[in-house]
């Protein structure tokens, strides 16, 4: 919960968090080391200096630190786990649904668990998805279209194999498809950042929501174009939001473009924890105002009502969270002693 100076309460759903293990013991090879180094580069280059962690802490911060950073020191009310397996780089995986589920059991009202699938895993993958959906009551999945798998160097969500999985997901009640279209690992010859496939699947699966994480960065321009045409395409602010500190002028322009093209109902807050912590992100976002000249050009304002939507109400709609009921249920004192 974020409280404004006037005592107004803002319900926060953090749409993008991780609990990873990139400790030396879990790193399988040079790629695992380079992967966490790259994440650390994001952390180091976009965080305010007083928010910097040591590389050791960053590699493995653990569940207690996470709960503290999100819900005790930080303003999150609910956080959505987005898994990233990377079993080729990390012995037990980088950030798996199974690991995340431990925290979900401890704090059932605080976390939403998302799963993952890879359309290249065939029938076996579909069965695994079914089992996963049943065990964890999944409402969403996180997909990496640029990920390697055997001989394949990535896939498109418009591929027939992907459609089979999307059909199954819909049947299983998984309606939120988070797609990582952003700075990516292992992009080779295929244009792994391309967002054009979303145009097709969003049209063909009108009952699913496609949340494009990192707003398609580095293809924000293409993403805006697609999102304006599809009513079920959303933008996740992870990686975009931290620019609010280091490049506030760019951030203002990007935010106004997103408001112009996507609209205020389709933008979702996400900290990308542990790359960044929600406390300073939300603090700065609440204090942020779009400069007048930008507002004049786009005609779009970042009002308190719009901030409320981005920070919680939009995600609440996608994940069927009853904000009023949740506010009553969450007892912060209980968290501190847990």
């Amino acid at each position: 919960m974020y409280k404004t100076k006037d005592g107004e309460e803002i319900f926060i759903i953090d749409g993008h968090v991780h609990l990873w293990d990139a400790s030396p013991e879990n790193i399988r090879n040079i790629h695992g080391k380079q992967f966490i180094d790259c994440f650390y580069g994001y952390h180091a280059s976009l965080s305010p200096p007083e928010q910097l962690w040591s590389p050791e802490k960053f590699a493995k911060y653990g569940p207690e630190q996470m709960v503290k950073d999100l819900f005790i020191d930080g303003p999150d009310d609910i956080a959505i786990f987005q898994p990233t397996y990377l079993k080729d780089f990390y012995k037990t995986g980088f950030n798996t649904l199974e690991q995340n589920a431990i925290l979900k059991t401890r704090y059932p009202d605080r976390f939403i668990l998302n799963g993952a699938f890879d359309p290249r895993d065939g029938e076996g993958g579909l069965e695994a998805l079914e089992a996963m959906a049943e065990t964890y009551k999944l409402q969403g999945v996180k997909l990496y279209t640029a990920e390697w798998n055997g001989e394949s160097r990535g896939y498109k969500l418009s591929d027939p194999a992907a459609y089979k999985y999307l059909e199954r997901a819909e049947k299983l009640g998984i309606k939120n498809i988070h797609v990582h279209k952003g700075p990516t690992i292992l992009p080779l010859d295929r244009d792994a950042f391309d967002v054009a496939d979303i145009d097709h699947c969003a049209t063909d699966f009108p009952n699913l929501n496609f949340i494009i994480e990192h707003c398609g960065l580095p293809r924000l321009d293409d993403f805006c174009w697609i999102a304006v045409q599809e009513t079920n395409v959303f933008g996740g602010l992870a990686v975009v939001l931290p620019f609010i500190h280091s490049r506030p002028a760019y951030f203002a322009k990007v935010m106004s473009e997103l408001l112009f093209w996507l609209g205020e109902d389709k933008i979702l807050f996400g900290s990308d924890y542990g790359i960044w912590t929600p406390q300073w992100l939300v603090e700065k976002f609440m204090a942020f105002e779009l400069p007048d000249e930008i507002v004049q050009e786009t005609g779009k304002q970042l009002t308190m009502a719009v901030k409320r939507k981005i920070l919680g109400e939009n995600a609440a709609r996608l994940y069927n969270v009853d904000i009023a009921a949740h506010m009553a249920k969450i007892n912060r004192a209980e968290l501190k002693v847990a």
């Binding site: 790259c38 580069g41 994001y42 280059s45 700075p183 580095p218 321009d221 990007v254």
Partner: peptide, 22 residues
């Protein structure tokens, strides 16, 4: 066409930051 330039600027800022951090 404004969003094309904005996108490039944004990526440029990201890449510079990552290079400096690396």
């Amino acid at each position: 066409i404004r969003r094309v330039g904005l996108n490039a600027e944004f990526n440029g800022a990201l890449c510079r930051g990552l290079l400096a951090a690396r």
